[in-house]
Write a protein that binds this DNA or RNA. Structure first.
Lengths: 165, 165
DNA sequence: CAAGAGATGTAATATCGCAACATATGGACT
DNA sequence: AGTCCATATGTTGCGATATTACATCTCTTG
């Protein structure tokens, strides 16, 4: 199984300015790294860039192929380390259900995200999830559990595939 | 990495009647299978029983070891098929973050569940998540996405580990 | 410049999960 | 009963995913 969706699968269902995603988000990541003292090194930066350009969920090994083709290391840890860094910094998300990663659309912000995965076309959208997170915090609080990080992934039908069916 | 938590990791943080979990839940699963025309065969039944007895998240290969030791098949599909059946029927849940499975505490009911995973002791609790689910449905609806199944997994600190720290 | 921390690269291997196929089991129907 | 069919079980073998361990390099700091 290849973790990444079909090549035509768009990340978000709604239209948006793609150049904005790549340029602006990259700039923000750079600023945030600087501010935090984190090092956005060439591999890491390029990894984020590829994630942003591809604009869909990518498996670690897909990323590794891309990186290797550009002269970076050829072994799995190269991709995993770069991706882990991006996730730690909040520049990317890991989607467990797909064993894949996506760039974060709004790094540095609020940062409770939910992923909506279309089971028909594999497209993945990142939805704001402040309310979902609040409900989860409340559910945890009831039994004394402190929620630190949450993974929220929904499987269903995107607008396009829904009307098609 | 072994997917299963430490042996001492309890499934739920709150106390509860363990015999109840095993006996009653198993009986319910049996009734539900009968009603639905699903076949709770020996491997499947035993798999659920082991899940209930162990009372924590178990990896598929851990389950395979148990099953093989009891005379069932020794190959991975044996465990995966039984576990998949249980998940399909709503008798168990898959926890993606841990590559593991747990028995469902209240099969047949409402059935929107969230998992609270303690990052210190690896204990896993299943929390009712009707509200979380409602918020997620709403977030999806805003962009026309229909949520069918949701995976909600929170990482944090359980009451015990929290006070210990 | 020397020392230490962190980043990168590689090899080897562990772990997870599935497709494909053969065989057995249990009903439904003559 | 006997035949047929759907479903379940068991096996081989493989592919995909992920990590550990270790060597090397590169910054940064004193």
């Amino acid at each position: 199984m290849t973790a990444s969706p079909t090549p035509t699968a768009a990340l978000a269902f709604a239209h948006h300015d793609h150049a904005h995603c790549v340029g602006e988000v990259l700039a923000r990541a750079e600023a945030a790294s600087l501010a935090r003292g984190a090092r956005l090194t060439p591999v890491r930066r390029r990894t984020l860039e590829i994630l942003l350009e591809s604009h869909r969920a990518m498996g670690a090994y897909d990323m590794l192929d891309r990186l290797a083709a550009e002269g970076f290391g050829k072994q799995p840890p190269v991709a995993y380390r770069a991706l882990d860094f991006l996730v730690e910094q909040g520049f990317a998300h890991r989607i467990n259900r797909l064993n894949a990663f996506t760039a974060c659309i709004h790094p540095g912000e609020d940062h409770a995200a939910a992923f909506l995965i279309c089971r028909a076309c594999n497209a993945v959208a990142e939805a704001p999830a402040a309310r979902v997170r609040a409900a989860l915090d409340a559910a945890g609080a009831e039994i004394g559990f402190t929620v630190e990080r949450a993974t929220v992934e929904a499987l269903g039908l995107c607008p396009t595939c829904r009307t098609a069916a």
